[in-house]
Nucleic acid binder design. Structure first.
Lengths: 201, 201
DNA sequence: AGTACTCACATGACAACGTCACACGAAATG
DNA sequence: CATTTCGTGTGACGTTGTCATGTGAGTACT
């Protein structure tokens, strides 16, 4: 039980969890290595045994975020709903990350730091699911163009909402409504949509 | 000529310009009050005579960014092209800011800091031009919904490009092509055989 | 004109931060 | 049991944002 490797792996996980919690609670400014160490029950220098520097620690948080989103998207894709509904649910899942963990979401969409290739690969895992879902509607031919358009649009909606530039008063709409518009405008989509998937936001 | 008020106003401008240059050149990390002071020819403590803190200095940079974009958009709107072309040019102008000043662009779309109301107001100046341009195509009725969708989509494209998640290899498209798709998909656009909603100029 | 005031700016100081070098002690190895 | 390994704690250093204080040139008052 007092295995050394296991103990080290446990503190590594504790460090990541502590960093994630601090990020969620107080934003990037609250994530100091001293605070992370304290919350993880170790000292301020301990992270350097597991990560080259602070940037790589945050990068790992981003990687985990993309991988977790990919899992959610996979579950949606394997669901039994219509292609339209599944695509809309996937887009809403993206909005959900933004709503639930805004600071992590912002980090996921900032320029990759630390180990960029690892981030790009993890993000690609989520993007591939989008590609597949869009392909089911518009066909393999146009899947990539429309996939890029839909993913960036959904991200734009989430980002605009997060930054406070999407006030309901000014635009008279909501992120959910905009996503619905996106899906319905897709060539090959059925106009009638009874979407019941997606989480609360 | 060595008027005290004028001199102070000049250093304020110099501070903002220095901060902007440092931001463009080295990203947010390069913008330290010491470096800003040095580049503006004053000391590290001088900014505190003009801004409450660093956050407010950066916020002013964001405000200026939005106002400058609004001017560009206004010039586009008053141009002689077709409504479609003008809207596309406006969206491309947004991409242009992202391409030319990526760090400032990222700041403009992050959660407002310092004096949020001032930022929201400046951003609104740009958003209103978008609203008008979109209204010229889809009509006043739907202008707000479509305006929000177009602006957030364009921002999403720019953001995805900036963060490196829009690789041409994966998606087989470019930001410009995506913007073109957006405009053509708009109901009332000339090239797409869509509904002929209100068309005014 | 000469004096007192004002205010923009410079400077010293402090706490907090990321990071490194080093020390310690317990697990792992023979 | 002796030795090595390695995860972690600790001291230290340079840098940062910020404030308190000093200073000197422009401004106002008599």
């Amino acid at each position: 039980m007092t295995n050394r490797a296991d103990s080290a792996a446990a503190t590594r996980v504790a460090l990541l969890r502590a960093a994630g919690d601090l990020l969620d609670a107080g934003g990037p400014a609250a994530v100091t290595l001293r605070a992370v160490g304290a919350q993880a029950g170790v000292s301020r220098g301990a992270p350097y045994g597991h990560f080259p520097d602070k940037e790589h620690l945050l990068a790992q948080l981003v990687v985990d975020g993309w991988l977790e989103l990919a899992q959610v998207l996979d579950r949606i894709r394997n669901g039994g709903e219509s292609a339209d509904a599944k695509l809309e649910a996937a887009l809403i899942a993206l909005l959900d990350v933004a709503a639930r963990k805004p600071h992590l979401y912002a980090l996921m969409w900032s320029a990759p730091t630390g180990d960029p290739s690892q981030i790009v690969e993890a993000a690609g895992r989520s993007q591939d699911v989008f590609l597949g879902l869009v392909g089911d509607i518009v066909g393999r031919e146009d899947a990539r163009r429309y996939g890029a358009l839909l993913m960036s649009s959904a991200h734009g909606i989430a980002s605009m909402e997060l930054s406070g530039h999407l006030s309901k008063q000014k635009w008279n709409t909501t992120p959910r409504a905009l996503v619905a518009m996106l899906v319905q405008a897709l060539p090959g989509a059925s106009s009638a949509g009874g979407v019941s998937a997606g989480d609360q936001t």
